[in-house]
C-alpha cells in the first residue's frame, strides 16, 4: 500500500537501540513512495540512527522503562522528524566539536555533527529533550518562518509497514 504526501504520524517505541529499525522501516519506504532521492533517504536514515541512539543512550540513559516518541511529517517537498526522549535534556552548545583538537581522536561525539550536516534544519526544544529536523528535496533559502514549521496537531498513530 502506498502512502502519498502529506503524511503526519506519531509513533512511540521502546527505548532500546534496536528499536530504531521499527522507526526507519516505517519512514524510509514512505520517502521512496514520495519520490525522495537516494541521497535524501541516506541522509534521513543516518540522521535517524544518530538521533535515536542519542535519545536512548544520553536522553533516557538506557532505561528500558522509558520510551522514545517520533513524530514525522512527509510533504511533497520535505520531510520533518521530531524525536523526543524522557530525559532531562541537554544543551547542544555544550557539546565539543569533534573535528578539532582531541575530539578528532575520541571514539564518540560525532552524532550531532552528522545530524547537522545531513539535515537542513536541526532545532531543539527549550528542555533539550526533543530534536526537530527537516530535510528538503531541494534546498530553499530558509527563512525563519519556514524553519519554524511544526507538526499538525492531527498527527495520528501509525502502524508498522503501512
Amino acid at each position: 500500500m502506498t502512502s502519498k504526501a502529506p503524511i503526519n504520524c506519531s509513533i512511540v517505541v521502546d527505548s532500546k537501540p534496536s528499536a530504531v529499525v521499527e522507526v526507519y522501516k516505517q519512514i524510509l519506504p514512505k520517502l521512496e513512495e514520495n519520490n525522495f532521492a537516494k541521497d535524501d533517504i541516506f541522509a534521513v536514515h543516518l540522521t535517524l540512527e544518530e538521533a535515536f541512539l542519542n535519545a536512548v543512550k544520553h536522553g533516557n540513559k538506557m532505561d528500558p522503562a522509558k520510551k522514545v516518541k517520533i513524530d514525522y511529517s512527509i510533504e511533497s517537498d520535505k520531510v520533518a522528524i521530531s524525536i523526543t526522549d524522557e530525559g532531562t535534556g541537554f544543551e547542544p552548545e555544550s557539546v565539543a566539536d569533534p573535528r578539532f583538537g582531541e575530539g578528532l581522536y575520541e571514539p564518540g561525539g560525532r552524532g550531532l555533527l552528522l545530524m547537522n550536516s545531513y539535515m537542513d534544519v536541526v532545532k531543539y526544544n527549550e528542555n533539550g529533550n526533543t530534536v526537530y529536523m527537516v530535510r528538503y528535496k531541494e534546498k530553499p533559502h530558509l527563512t525563519e518562518k519556514q524553519s519554524q514549521t511544526q507538526f499538525s496537531s492531527e498527527a495520528g498513530p501509525c502502524q508498522q509497514n503501512q
Binding site: 540512527e49 544518530e50 571514539p107 552528522l114
Partner: peptide, 16 residues
Amino acid sequence: RFLSSAVLGLLIRISK
C-alpha cells in the same frame, strides 16, 4: 553501503 558514527568510534579504537 551504510554505517553510522558508532562505526567511526570503532575505527578510532582499532587505530589506537
